[in-house]
Design a binder for these strands. Structure first.
Lengths: 137, 137
DNA sequence: CAGGATCCGAGCGGATACTG
DNA sequence: CAGTATCCGCTCGGATCCTG
């Protein structure tokens, strides 16, 4: 997709003749978006909600490792970004459903590319991790 | 790319007949990879290094906003993951170059998809942000 | 030039207890 | 069931000073 020009100034000209404008890169919204969906749980929830709408506790069980606090916070954040919708059914006991908005579903595609990369190179990453001396400063 | 099966169990079966195994999702390495390259600067550096190798201060100026500490730490992390190589030229004053490994360059592709999405939907995200009442708990 | 060392505030994120 | 409220440790990440 690096070859398809959409009219928007592409941030990734690595295989294009253009020698890249660094200012354009530094000011690009890539960082912002990553700060929003790049946290510990957001993309996991987006991926999970991408399969079908889920109830609150359904998500809680599915991710299993996330705390109630973080699940709520993350869902609220995704909702505020317009990536996730929230529907309350006024029943007893109450039922709340979460799902992806069209915007969220559009995010699912590039996210899937990254997820696929992660799965494919998982072993490779872990191997290098152990090999390299971890002298973190 | 959601339709292409690579032999690896796909985490994203949202448009596939398979109703998704949630255990597989929770245990998938997507979260791990995001924890590694999903921080504030990693993907920005990967994108920047994807254009051509850079010197240390060159990166420092290009990103401009990153501190020395974080630049070094992030580069070390990417190096430990095998995404970035580091080459020291024993000159005076010393010159250190950073660049993408083949693994890092392979990451550039899915990253570009996400970056493109970010650029395309930047306005949309910001609009929703202001519209929605921010009741974060 | 390319970092290392140290200090520090801010926020993430988990645990627990409580509620409509 | 679907949250809210509070406490708390931990890490992220910036600022500053120092070095080979």
């Amino acid at each position: 997709m690096s070859g398809t020009n959409t009219g928007v100034p592409s941030v990734l000209a690595h295989d294009l003749p253009r020698p890249v404008p660094p200012d354009e890169l530094a000011a690009c919204p890539v960082g912002d978006v990553f700060r929003r969906v790049g946290d510990k749980w957001s993309m996991l929830l987006v991926i999970l909600l991408g399969t079908r709408p889920h109830r609150y506790n359904e998500l809680h069980r599915a991710v299993e490792g996330i705390s109630q606090r973080m699940l709520t916070r993350t869902l609220r954040g995704l909702e505020a970004d317009g990536l996730v919708w929230r529907e309350v059914h006024p029943t007893v006991p109450p039922g709340v459903e979460y799902g992806l908005t069209p915007l969220g579903r559009s995010l699912l595609e590039p996210l899937s590319a990254l997820a696929d990369w992660a799965v494919r190179h998982e072993a490779e990453l872990n191997k290098v991790r152990r090999t390299a001396p971890n002298r973190s400063g």
